[in-house]
């Protein structure tokens, strides 16, 4: 009996993930990123929701306010809402999106292909990054045209970095929701978390307008620490001493939760 149907003998099952070549990790990452982008883009309403909501928030909460004419305040407000945009991508693309994918048989099928978790997860992260960037574009355009906000060129890279760092706890939170919860639970939790975290962290109204007790609570929220970091990066405002410890603690906590949920995940289909 010939055990060699088409390609290989039993001894040379080529390890598909190592050794670059046609099935290298980078190529697989590109493959999964592309497929996921295509899947998302072909449901335009999902894209529009993510992209439009932060811009609408900007139009309602910032543009009509008197402080929109003050460069420093308008820039800070734009920074806050940018973080809100990134946060909603994290909670919805990563949280709800991952939970939905895991419930689909196609996700199970992809796990039977010779590919590890790395390229699929990397594809997911790049996908979210792309959406975050896309959602920032109209926001920045509105800020530029309709407010006094101004970001000096030399602060651009700093701001992008601050946004990325501030997004880390949100990313962990999103992945924890996505890998740890069913679709329905993920949607509910993401919605329940989004607005309180955003409002409490001063992403809609600046914390200067908070009553004392709310400001005290707000200090310990990951969104507040993230907001302070991004605002400081854009305007050069002083950074409170609590910012880095709070941000690091939340990033660590949510990372642990996300990794644990990810490890325990075998798909959602038997629960």
């Amino acid at each position: 009996m010939s055990p060699t149907p088409t390609t290989a003998t039993p001894s040379d099952v080529t390890p598909a993930r190592t050794g670059g070549g046609r099935t290298g990790g980078l190529r697989l990452t590109a493959l999964h990123t592309r497929a996921q982008l295509l899947e998302t883009v072909r449901v335009p309403i999902a894209v529009i929701g993510t992209v439009v909501f932060p811009t609408l928030t900007m139009l309602f909460f910032v543009v009509p306010q008197p402080f929109a004419d003050d460069p420093a305040q308008a820039t800070a407000a734009t920074a806050q809402i940018s973080l809100f945009a990134v946060m909603s991508v994290c909670l919805f693309t990563y949280g709800v999106g991952v939970a939905e994918d895991r419930a689909l048989p196609w996700d199970s099928y992809l796990r039977t292909l010779p590919v590890g978790a790395g390229p699929r997860l990397a594809g997911r992260l790049l996908n979210g990054l792309a959406f975050a960037l896309v959602s920032l574009v109209p926001l920045v355009v509105v800020a530029w045209l309709l407010t006094a906000a101004a970001l000096p060129a030399d602060r651009l890279v700093l701001t992008a970095g601050a946004l990325a760092v501030a997004a880390l706890p949100m990313l962990g939170l999103g992945l924890w929701i996505g890998y740890g919860m069913s679709t329905k639970a993920a949607l509910a939790v993401a919605q329940v978390l989004l607005l309180p975290l955003a409002f409490g962290g001063g992403l809609f109204l600046p914390p200067q307008m908070f009553p004392g007790w709310l400001d005290a609570v707000s200090t310990w929220l990951p969104t507040r620490a993230g907001r302070d970091l991004v605002v400081s990066a854009t305007t050069g405002a002083d950074l409170p001493g609590t910012t880095w410890p709070v941000l690091a603690a939340w990033a660590l906590l949510t990372a642990v939760l996300a990794v644990r949920a990810y490890r325990r995940d075998e798909g959602r289909r038997f629960r």
Binding site: T7, A8, V13, T14, P15, A16, R17, T18, A35, L38, E39, R42, V43, L104, P105, W106, S108, Y109, T112, L113, P114, V115, G116
Partner: peptide, 21 residues
């Protein structure tokens, strides 16, 4: 182990194809 599956071919459940692709 992903490498073990390099020689495996499998059918997905028909309901499992991504509808937009």
């Amino acid at each position: 182990e992903p490498a073990a599956r390099a020689g495996l071919g499998m059918t997905p459940q028909e309901t499992g194809l991504p509808p937009t692709l």
